[in-house]
Simulated scan of single mutants.
Amino acid sequence: MRSTTNYLFCFLEIFSSEGGIQSYVRDILKAYVSLTAAANSPPQAQVLLLRDSPDCKNPYQSKNIKFYYLKTDRPWLGRLKFATILLSCLVQKRPQRVFCGHINLAPLIQTLCRPLGIPYTILTYGKEVWEPLAPKYQTAMRQADSIWTISRYTRDSLRDSFAARTCQINNLNPEKFPIVPCTVDGNIFTIGPKSQHLLKQYNLINAKILITVARLRSTDIYKGVDVTIQALPQIAKTFPNVKYLVIGRGDDRSRLAQLAADLGVAERVIFAGFVATENLAAHYRLADACVMPSQEGFGIVYLEALACGVPVLAGDADGSADPLQDGKLGWRVPHRDSAAVAVACIEMLKGKDKRCDRDFLREQTLARFSFESLCQSLEEIFQASDTPKNG
Score class of each variant (00 low, 15 high):
290 C>R: 02
238 T>F: 01
297 G>R: 03
280 L>T: 13
220 D>H: 08
265 V>L: 01
106 A>V: 02
152 R>F: 10
109 I>W: 06
320 S>N: 09
356 C>L: 00
37 A>L: 06
213 V>K: 01
242 V>F: 04
346 I>S: 02
381 I>T: 03
208 K>D: 00
119 P>Q: 06
169 I>G: 12
6 N>G: 08
173 N>T: 01
308 C>K: 11
53 S>F: 05
256 L>V: 01
325 Q>V: 15
2 R>T: 11
236 A>Y: 11
102 H>E: 13
25 V>S: 10
382 F>Q: 05
228 T>P: 01
293 P>H: 04
30 K>P: 08
114 R>V: 04
290 C>Y: 07
349 L>P: 07
351 G>M: 06
108 L>F: 09
269 V>G: 07
99 F>S: 11
2 R>G: 13
28 I>H: 12
337 D>S: 03
213 V>D: 04
204 L>V: 05
165 R>G: 10
332 R>G: 13
197 H>D: 11
30 K>L: 10
226 D>N: 14
208 K>P: 07
220 D>S: 12
122 I>Y: 08
28 I>K: 07
48 L>E: 02
294 S>N: 02
29 L>E: 03
92 Q>V: 15
273 G>W: 00
251 D>M: 12
47 V>A: 03
258 Q>L: 07
155 R>M: 14
144 A>R: 13
358 R>F: 14
94 R>F: 05
342 A>I: 05
351 G>E: 15
272 A>S: 08
51 R>F: 15
52 D>R: 08
283 H>Q: 13
10 C>H: 00
387 T>S: 01
142 R>M: 07
250 G>V: 06
216 L>I: 01
205 I>N: 11
143 Q>T: 13
355 R>K: 13
106 A>S: 00
389 K>Y: 11
